[in-house]
Amino acid sequence: MMYSPAIIAEAVVNGLMTGAVYALIALGLTLVYGVLHIINFAHGALLTAAMFAVWAVYVAFGLDPYLAILPLTPLFFGLGYAVQRFVIGPASHGSDSNILLVTLGLSIAIENALLAGFRSDTRTLNTDYGFQVVELGPLLLSKPRLIGFGAAVLVTVLLWLLLSRTDTGKAIRAVAKEKLGASLVGIDVAHVYAVTFGLGCACLAVAACLLMPTFYVNPRIGQAFVLVAFTIVVLGGMGSIPGALVGGLFIGVVESLCGLFLGDSLGQIGIFLIFILVLLVRPTGLFGAKA
């Protein structure tokens, strides 16, 4: 079946817009992996929690999801910092397998707490711009997704600047590769771990704010996103920030085009085909260092 170029172009642009938010979620995952060398199994549950937080401040205070970025990003940074510093760190006793179990346990606890508090209902926000479109030449683009794209790319650039230009960012990169060397120049490794985990959670808070105008939330929603984010991290290279961005955009386009040609319900099939292909052909990912 053939489509007109305009429809295909629209699918590609739509895919890029979704992909940017995927990239943001993957960014948090890849950052934590790159520095702490662990897969954070609680990433999905924390995203769900962030999405509920966006929903809650909207319902309780009428706070617009985009404005909610301002309070929720620092809040989730603080939350992530505290979780790493006072829960994951002390509970792991320095062993990576313990950390995996602790984050897994954390995800079960968060998900079930949300289930107990909010029931399994699916909830949405009704903003007046939720269905607005922007005309861009021949393309009709969803306004909230366009905003999501811009914001996600901006956050990626800001994070990259933080890591490459500031002392804190340099300390994070130092700890990622050489923990002992970092301690010996006086970097507090436990603090850097917690800051990194906090940054990962802050990315989730921004992603949640960008998703909620067009998406819904229920206590298990995070898992679906994290599965995609994990594919992106593997595709881009574990621990690579540009890899997460490029991988996210690419996966978004793949999902969108597969949805167009195979039908909406099969859109994700392409993502997992790519996942298998990457593992077979280039297991270190696009930007990954050789093991």
């Binding site: 002392d167 340099k170 130092a174 590769k177 002992l180 060397g181 970092a182 010996l184 120049v185």
Partner: peptide
């Protein structure tokens, strides 16, 4: 125990 992924200047700055 230098930081292999960072530039010489960044190592010194740290």
């Amino acid at each position: 125990k230098i930081f292999p992924n960072m530039s010489v200047r960044e190592n010194l700055e740290l």
